[in-house]
Amino acid sequence: MKIIQILRSRGVEVIITENARKEIERFRDAHVSQALSADERSGVIFFGGFQDKRAAGLAFHHVAILKEEDIMKDVISAYNHAKSKSDMIFASSSPSKSADIEGKLIFGMHGPKKFTVIVEVRK
């Protein structure tokens, strides 16, 4: 899956598993969201719901559970797939970052410093 490489290349921790439930045990201090869909090409991951959006924004560590079957071929399909399941869609693709001070890249500006994606593959 191309998306795994893409996410890893930008500092996202990616875990591939057949059982996501087992994996989230490890992330008790993080905010865990169920992803609604993702764009294979850009690595943009869609979520939904106002409360989840606030919590994901405030968290220091955001963990997403993404099902393999929710990975779509392009961003428009991914967005529409997410929209069919929830309102208040929002998307993340990397940890929070900024390069506003002399172009120096720092992570964890206002949002999560760490972003983990657990990709649940079919058994």
């Binding site: 959006k53 924004g57 405030l58 929070s96 500006m109 949002g111």
Partner: peptide
């Protein structure tokens, strides 16, 4: 990229 808009507009 920073996450400030998410917080400014949802909190």
């Amino acid at each position: 990229n920073e996450g400030n808009i998410r917080l400014s507009t949802s909190l």
